[in-house]
Computed example of a mutant assay.
Amino acid sequence: MAGERPPQEAKANSLMRVSHSNPSLQVTADHRLKMVEAPVHEPGTGEVLLHIRTTGVCGSDIHFWKTGRIGSLVVQGDCILGHEAAGVVLKCGEGVSRVQVGDRVAIEPGVPCENCFLCREGRYNLCEDVRFAGVYPYHGSVQRYMVYPAKWLHKIPDSVSFAEAALLEPLSVVLHGLQTARLTLGHGVLIAGAGPIGLIALAAARASGAHPIIITDLEPKRLAFAKDFVQSCVTYQVDRNLDAEANARAIRSVFGADDDEYQAPRTVLECTGVESSVCIAAFAVRRGGVVVVIGVGKAIMNNLPFMHISLAEIDLRFINRYRDTWPAGINCLAGGILDLKKLVSHKFPLEGALEAMELCSDLSKGSIKVHIVDDVDAAVL
């Protein structure tokens, strides 16, 4: 299962209650966070017991806390948060052969049904019956001990740290976005948003050979970080006093499209999900270009420039999470194609998970990627 067994199944499953501490960060249906001692489950057939060493805080965790939902995904009861995770195998259940005790692993947090037509087609990221760690009712990784299906674990080499392995989940989002966008060597790309996803997209676009690359944001500190992170990029601070078309004109001017429409970006990777940013992307991309919305936004957008998108034959695409990206992501990190270590701006111990969430939710604090780390010696249960 994705994460430990959901609350409604707890009574039906035998638990191995132990004296070893298992602190966990839980969100409630009434928008509260709490640290709770969680039970430890015995791994069943095909499952392993993990010691979670690192979990990254994602914007979706903040959404579930602050609003209680993302689209149709609603927090209806207590749920352990976390899905950007890596750890160590402590115990293997019956039938597990792909990993063994002591293996260092990254967690692919979505477990699809494997029976629907989408799963059979290999598009398992679209499975409607996916059990996703940290999304109610499936518990996530901000806890010390977690039971998880071995099939959805990926062994990491010694050269990849737990912190890097926990970045494989947001990297996977970007890899799926790049596959959807089909970036072309030597052609310009616009990246909207200098948050963690946008910054990873920036590094990945540079590694892919895209040029020139412009990244936008409202926050100058994030743009300064982006410029330091990938020095060859150009930054543009979105002007709140201008409408989408005016901001887009300014961006296109930086690309050199005032004199040559061909120089306007062929591709836009929209990494915020904010409606105004999607509108800027639509006006900034060249006619016949591609806009891939990677960011998660509100359920309904009412003001997209439909006729402009239509008349310019702009290919507006969307992604949902990822599929078959972990092996490639591991290769990128282990092979030195991408170095994402600088993105981790803050680390908190597991017992300080509440502080980690508070920091991450306050953009004025300047965090990029916040990690919750558990370096204690976990007992073999």
Rank of each mutant, 00 (worst) to 15 (best):
160 V>A: 05
122 G>Y: 14
239 D>M: 07
111 V>Q: 01
143 Q>F: 00
158 D>C: 06
231 Q>H: 13
140 G>C: 00
183 L>M: 07
237 Q>V: 08
178 L>W: 06
132 F>E: 05
159 S>T: 14
197 I>G: 01
212 P>F: 09
133 A>Q: 02
239 D>I: 12
159 S>N: 10
172 S>E: 06
198 G>V: 04
136 Y>A: 00
172 S>H: 08
161 S>N: 04
212 P>G: 10
141 S>R: 02
180 T>G: 01
153 L>S: 00
240 R>P: 09
147 V>G: 00
165 A>M: 08
203 A>Q: 11
233 C>N: 01
162 F>K: 02
205 A>M: 04
189 V>E: 01
204 A>G: 08
197 I>V: 15
184 T>L: 14
115 N>A: 14
113 C>S: 13
233 C>Y: 05
156 I>N: 01
159 S>Q: 10
237 Q>D: 09
214 I>N: 02
212 P>N: 06
134 G>R: 00
135 V>T: 13
131 R>M: 07
118 L>F: 14
236 Y>R: 08
216 T>G: 09
190 L>A: 07
182 R>A: 12
196 P>H: 09
149 P>D: 03
163 A>E: 15
134 G>Y: 00
216 T>H: 10
232 S>H: 05
159 S>I: 03
113 C>E: 07
157 P>F: 00
166 A>Q: 05
192 A>Y: 05
197 I>C: 03
220 P>D: 08
176 H>W: 13
144 R>H: 09
168 L>N: 11
118 L>G: 14
115 N>H: 14
208 S>L: 09
179 Q>N: 15
175 L>Q: 11
121 E>M: 15
171 L>S: 12
133 A>C: 11
129 D>F: 14
157 P>A: 00
222 R>F: 07
235 T>V: 14
232 S>I: 09
219 E>R: 13
195 G>C: 11
214 I>S: 00
187 H>W: 13
142 V>L: 11
153 L>R: 02
232 S>G: 15
195 G>K: 06
168 L>P: 04
180 T>F: 00
150 A>I: 04
197 I>D: 01
152 W>H: 14
241 N>H: 15
123 R>I: 11
161 S>Q: 04
232 S>P: 05
114 E>S: 13
172 S>G: 15
211 H>Y: 13
116 C>A: 12
217 D>C: 10
141 S>P: 03
161 S>T: 15
234 V>G: 06
123 R>M: 15
225 F>R: 07
111 V>F: 07
230 V>W: 03
